[in-house]
Amino acid sequence: MSEIKQTFNSSLGKKLIMALTGLFLCTFIIVHLGGNLFLFKDDQGYGFNVYANFLTHFPPIEVIAYLLYLAIIVHAFYALILTLSNKKSRPVAYASQSKSPASWSSKNMGLLGSILLLFIVIHMGDFWYKYKFTDTVGFKEYRTNVLTNQRTVADFKPVDPTFEHSVTTVNDEEIVRVKDLHAKVATTFSCWWYVLIYVIAMVSLSFHLVHGFQSAFQTLGWTHRKYTPVVKFIGTWFFAVIIPLGFALMPVVYFFQSISK
């Protein structure tokens, strides 16, 4: 036991924890972006609301979700511990500004991570907390004719306050009643400064990942002449461009939809 403790208390052990939690969070944002693409589907929120309901009611995903919250906390906590120990390693600062070539993002991971942590708190407070623990999110009733695939939407007011969702079938009509997170998203993103917070956070995410993704591989010791360029390519174009851009488009598109109405 002390052997394992010693491993994870060493400088490299702490970095291993940073790398593994970081990569886990990287895989999460792929899923998160993929699922949220439902927001771009023009179906009055049907796909998105059913997806949100699935995420909050499918037990294995619940388990992974709590692992995810743990990973965020551990990643931030170890970042703090490492930063404090790094500060202690240079008690007297240089008088001159360092001119050693190093990328801006690699030198500002702490700042970028702090912005992201603050954003995660705001973001989860907006949607996750309100969806799961308050009754500020309304309900929608989707009636789909399974033969013609025609769908009608109506607001729905449950009689029982503990009601969460239902799927029933009457003749050829499938009736789905779910929490209307889509409407919550639309109202939240109609506020310009909220959109700005999201865009700033996604810029931070981009810079955090352009260094973070390939840095995790370096820390794990997975560098190779053949594969490291591939890792750097994925880290730059997929994690630092496509993913933050995809996320940032959601509030921006919803904002412009709200002012065009």
Binding site: S10, S11, L82, N86, S89, S98, S103, S215
Partner: peptide, 20 residues
Amino acid sequence: VAQMDEEGFGNCTNTGACEA
């Protein structure tokens, strides 16, 4: 690595300044 930690050096953040 154990001796390095004991001496009080910091932790690598892969900035690459050392290499440069």
